[in-house]
Design a protein around this nucleic acid. Sequence first.
DNA 1: TGATAATATTTGCATAATGCAAGCAATAAA
DNA 2: TTTATTGCTTGCATTATGCAAATATTATCA
Lengths: 162, 162
Amino acid sequence: MNKSKTSLPLENWIGYRFSLISARLGNFVAPMYADRHDLTMPAWRSLAVIARYQPLTASQLAMRTSSDAFKVARAIELLVRRGLIHRDLDKNDRRRASLRLTSNGRKVYKDIEKFVVRVENELASALDANELTMLRQSLDKLERQLESRIRTHAWEEFMKGP
Amino acid sequence: MNKSKTSLPLENWIGYRFSLISARLGNFVAPMYADRHDLTMPAWRSLAVIARYQPLTASQLAMRTSSDAFKVARAIELLVRRGLIHRDLDKNDRRRASLRLTSNGRKVYKDIEKFVVRVENELASALDANELTMLRQSLDKLERQLESRIRTHAWEEFMKGP
DNA sequence: TGATAATATTTGCATAATGCAAGCAATAAA
DNA sequence: TTTATTGCTTGCATTATGCAAATATTATCA
């Protein structure tokens, strides 16, 4: 009944496989937005997340990028300096700022998106419709599980270990 | 017939989802091996890959970590300095060195593996057997597709763009 | 109210990671 | 034997990260 495998080979570790694929993909795409728009990877990630979910606060942006407020602050600063987003103080709570693309930000985003979406589509074409649907479902489940385990500190007692 | 979507929302980008999940997982696990064994993330990745595929040359290690010879050289240097791996010159081609765990390296690896595998299993328990099988299949397909597209420079003409 | 706590974000600084150019040494090709 | 190529390493400038502390705003409650 105890499902703990004595051996789970590396190539079946989800963290390993996901990070391999996303790193390769990232390394491949990065030169494009670096050359054309002089953006770093964290800046591009932030730009894409803001484009999708705006308006957004810095901490929401952090969550949506698996990051934290510190890191994201720098990406925000860069994007503001470049005129790609603006940061407006929230009227009701002036501690937080809501982030939105500027019109120039939208232009830059669109330019990069064209390329990224093309790469994504070509990648996804390795899967049929059913596989793609199931993959997305599984990703949702994994994300929820991970979030819940981290939130409830489910692994912490084990981590201290002997 | 042209499958290019006018809009593929961010949450369906494979690169985005994979990097979110693997970053969160990595950030969660890292303090464990950092505290207990003072290892950095690239060093731990290398250790795990060597444990799985040894003996291994530096460039094989680089491929298996979505990395390159430069980056990996530093992780190797650290692991050698710590006595976790040794680097033996290949008898037939003395440019390359084959990497293997030392017995101490095996011990350290096992200690971290216990924890990582537990986390992995708990994460994977969000999926049933069929979903897990399909996920692994899809990962294989995606990896092959990505590799083939990168190898054949399938996207490069587009990248220069207008 | 007024002191204290909590929240949202930023900053400074030490450390770690990366990218790239150039290097060395061994082997392969001409 | 000269010239290329391969495998790997080094140095150095640039970026990215982690963490502690600072600032400013809002919330709590005695």
